[in-house]
Amino acid sequence: MFRQLRLAARTGIVTEPPAGQAEVARLGEALAREVCARFGGSLHIRQVDAGSCNGCELEIAGLTGPHYDLERFGLHFVASPRHADCLLVTGPVTRNMAEALRHTYDATADPKIVIAAGDCAVDAGIFRGSYAVVGGVAAIVPVDATIPGCPPSPAALLAGLLDALGRRR
């Protein structure tokens, strides 16, 4: 028990300041301002895997670690879409996950935003045209912001999230 605390005392804080570039496509300045006003201080994110290869998930998982630490910006991952303000969707939406994604979107309380992370979520990426895939997230639910990359690095994800919120770095 004390070994953990001694290790913590020795290691100290390792969080890095946010860096990295991301091309984020946002839909309209008015919407961005409203999103910033509402969710600028606190955004609860529910990550939805709509058939991804899990590459994006591994990068997203890095966000909760000590180096990227998205919690310092008021962002927080939650378990239930009822608790969420933002759906972070990855993966080309496969036919089997289309209905589930729709249910998840409907289960989320309004107002909410949807962010599509990764090339697959934007427009099905390398799986575009496959018989098993419906096509990017925008085919199922309305998307407010996208973060391209295959997979986007945690720094890019963080920059993209902050940019989507209209927050200064």
Binding site: S80, P81, R82, M97, E99, A100, H103, A107, A109, D110
Partner: peptide, 12 residues
Amino acid sequence: PRRYETWGCGRL
């Protein structure tokens, strides 16, 4: 409030 079905991890 808005009425919707119980959250069941997206089951149908």
